[in-house]
């Protein structure tokens, strides 16, 4: 049987607030196969980035911890790995690109040396040898005139170029998994498309799996093979990208899709929105986390949290789906 590259099983992350422990990510499960792109979608504060940080083992240990679950990467449980082993994985097998290309590069170091640092740290080669590989990497991420750019400082590069440099750094050792945490949020729209295309091309070229974290459904439609929609720290719905866009089940997913402007619709109406805000994780009770913003909330939504259900490919956590099944039956 073919094991997925990464499988996150029932991951919960909690915040230690004094004596109380507040769950921020609850029982999140998903898996990524080799060469696949999985998008993690949701509003701010729904636990997207926390999930990514948990995977690479960089949660702030003093206030946050993985309270349950497993993260299996190439057959090893990342949560039980020691700090040294985890460090050797980071940058080598798992790489991450953050959303702030403007501040993610050390302003006092030439970019060539910064990229070379990853290679030197993991492969123990000399810096001169690493710098030769850097030129190839800069070509790979389509930075023109690589030899000259490698000698420049980050302030001499535009935002899009810096993000390319970050991608070059992340892909320096051809990791099996690339985590991209809103990689295009800080960039101009035209540059966004270029950077996304670049990530997608490199994924195809190296058979890298991509975990793309975003709140932009346009990006999802463009990039994803499969989508996981998070709401208030739990999975609301997960499905193949086409299935999700064609047949959204969860009212939250429908709301997100409804909030996109259709260029060809000709409508001049106000954009649809989801009323209200993400609930405070401290105040979550036994009911469905979305019920207060949900137009089709039912009595059961107030008393019981809906389980994640459905077939293997399309699952959602909503009582509506359950009701639908019963009506059909």
């Amino acid at each position: 049987m073919n094991l997925p590259l990464l499988s996150v099983e029932n991951l919960s992350v909690s915040l230690d607030a004094g004596a109380a422990s507040v769950p921020l990510v609850r029982n999140v499960s998903f898996s990524i196969d080799r060469g696949e792109t999985l998008c993690l979608v949701g509003e701010s504060g729904c636990g997207k980035s926390l999930t990514a940080l948990a995977i690479i083992g960089l949660l702030n240990r003093e206030v946050m911890q993985v309270s349950s679950g497993r993260i299996l990467f190439e057959g090893r449980d990342l949560i039980s790995l020691g700090a040294g082993e985890m460090r050797r994985l980071r940058g080598d097998r798992i790489a991450i690109v953050f959303q702030e290309p403007m501040t993610s590069l050390n302003p006092v170091q030439r970019i060539g040396r910064q990229i070379a640092e990853v290679i030197v740290e993991h492969r123990g080669v000399s810096e001169a040898d690493a710098l030769k590989q850097v030129l190839r990497l800069l070509d790979l991420v389509r930075i023109p005139d690589a030899a000259r750019r490698a000698q420049e400082f980050p302030h001499q590069l535009s935002g899009g170029m810096r993000q390319r440099v970050m991608i070059a750094m992340a892909l320096a050792l051809q990791p099996a998994l690339l985590i991209a945490d809103e990689p295009t949020t800080a960039l101009d729209v035209t540059i966004q498309a270029q950077v996304l295309t670049l990530i997608d091309d490199l994924r195809r070229e190296f058979d890298t799996s991509v975990l793309l974290i975003t709140h932009d459904l346009g990006v999802v439609a463009e990039m994803a093979d499969r989508v996981v929609v998070l709401y208030a720290g739990s999975v609301a719905e997960q499905a193949d990208v086409d299935d999700l866009f064609d047949r959204p089940v969860h009212p939250y997913t429908r709301g997100l899709l409804g909030a996109i402007r259709q260029l060809n619709s000709g409508s001049r109406d106000r954009l649809a929105e989801i009323p209200g805000n993400v609930p405070n994780p401290v105040s979550l009770d036994a009911g469905c986390a979305f019920r207060k913003r949900c137009a089709s909330a039912m009595p059961i939504c107030h008393s019981e949290r809906p389980p994640l259900q459905g077939d293997g490919l399309h699952r959602s956590a909503c009582w509506l789906a359950k009701v639908g099944e019963e009506v059909m039956a």
């Binding site: 460090r87 980071r90 501040t103 993610s104 590069l105 050390n106 640092e117 750094m169």
Partner: peptide, 13 residues
């Protein structure tokens, strides 16, 4: 700083 975090995520000693 973000670049220190970035260096950590790249597996720097």
């Amino acid at each position: 700083r973000a670049y220190v975090e970035a260096a950590i995520t790249c597996g720097g000693r």
